[in-house]
Design a protein around this nucleic acid. Sequence first.
DNA 1: CGACTTGTTGAGCCCATTCAATGCTAGTGG
DNA 2: CCACTAGCATTGAATGGGCTCAACAAGTCG
Lengths: 243, 243
Amino acid sequence: MPYVPCPSCPLRANGPFKQYADRDIKFLDDLKKDHLAVEAGRDIIDAGDPNPPLFTLFSGWAFRYKMLPDGRRQILNFLLPGDVIGFQGHMFDAAPHSVQTLTDVELCSFHRSKVWELFSAHPELAFDLTWLTAREECYVDDNLLTVGRRSAVEAVGTLLIHLYKRADALNLRKNGGVTFPLTQSHIADALGLSLVHTNKSLRKLAKMGLHEIKNGSLTLTNGRALEKLAQFFDEPLAARPLL
Amino acid sequence: MPYVPCPSCPLRANGPFKQYADRDIKFLDDLKKDHLAVEAGRDIIDAGDPNPPLFTLFSGWAFRYKMLPDGRRQILNFLLPGDVIGFQGHMFDAAPHSVQTLTDVELCSFHRSKVWELFSAHPELAFDLTWLTAREECYVDDNLLTVGRRSAVEAVGTLLIHLYKRADALNLRKNGGVTFPLTQSHIADALGLSLVHTNKSLRKLAKMGLHEIKNGSLTLTNGRALEKLAQFFDEPLAARPLL
DNA sequence: CGACTTGTTGAGCCCATTCAATGCTAGTGG
DNA sequence: CCACTAGCATTGAATGGGCTCAACAAGTCG
């Protein structure tokens, strides 16, 4: 796993990300502690950890989740390259949720102790960190609307479109579709549904000719109709911050 | 409606809020545009507004919500005195959700154009604004867990405890209980339940002797058992920021 | 007083659940 | 190469939690 210095970050160069002044990039490079690889299915943040790490997701997928003591799980939202991980834990006594990798990932880890310096000396970065926090809240808000008020079929359709758009915006295309590493169990836990009913809803949508999932790749075969069904929110902005 | 200057803010003086340096308070006072009253049941932010206002809730209750085109409504979270309103809309093209008053309220409105100055010249305030944004996300995360994975009775119990704790922390006590301005319809829309089933769940909890709602006041008559049932998250911190 | 909002309760239905069984694929080890 | 295992996807059957529909009580406001 080669160390990737921020000034030569390929994600920053190739993705739909905002550009920063050299001074800011230099600071980010100073903030960066390590570049590490973690395999799929590992918890990288544990709810309750009083001193959780701070990352940016460099490559791969992950998700934030919470559990009830009896084992019920709710996935809060999914994390794609460029997303900040664990900042909430920095602000409170302890990490309020867990984070688990969905695929093998690469992470940029940061020095938590220097976050205050970010706020005091790099207001543009601070603003964008807040922006990323707010955007994550938007995703959760939308998912809450889905879980609370949409039917199972609507909910599954909505989630597929949402993830398709986000992956597509990051150029995660792969022979016609986008990479799609979720199992049906993840979909169920993100939507508050049972695994069995999630499967039946997926089959129903596929039979309606609206999507196809094969070999870890998601294709929307009738995007327009699916959008109409799901009435999902707008695309993310084109130029987004990347810390 | 008398104008309340920030240096003599009674909320800041009496509530469980953090203290700031005079310099910061002075800036906040400069940021403040108006002090206004709005009656109960009014939308103060409309989803889709490209230029939504920015407030702090000075007194009263409100809630953030989203609607589907066919009228289904999902309440995202509730807003109590000290909460910032509309900051998300400042970061995106348009307000991603609506905000409606639940009681008569008083609002401090701010100059949106000076938010950047807040970040560049008042990092402590910027950090705390981010903190408030992150805390709101925590509330939504918890509500998503509730809506997705708890039964109706558990969900209603959880919400009652959550609101009781928040109101209690703000000293909103009233002859034994705390003020509680929600109708059952609000509870239903916050939890993704039907109105009828919400009513039945409330009655069930009341019959179990766990709470009582009367004259706009909520009393937890068996707090310990209810907590056990709901297994809700920790108290908010004692000293929180107030912008 | 009627109109309206909010809360309450019962009846019946249906969407989503649990339980259960089976197929498919990939990986492991003999 | 095959037996065995494990994880994931699929499907049917039966149950049930939460839904809709409907009626009514109680308080408030013009």
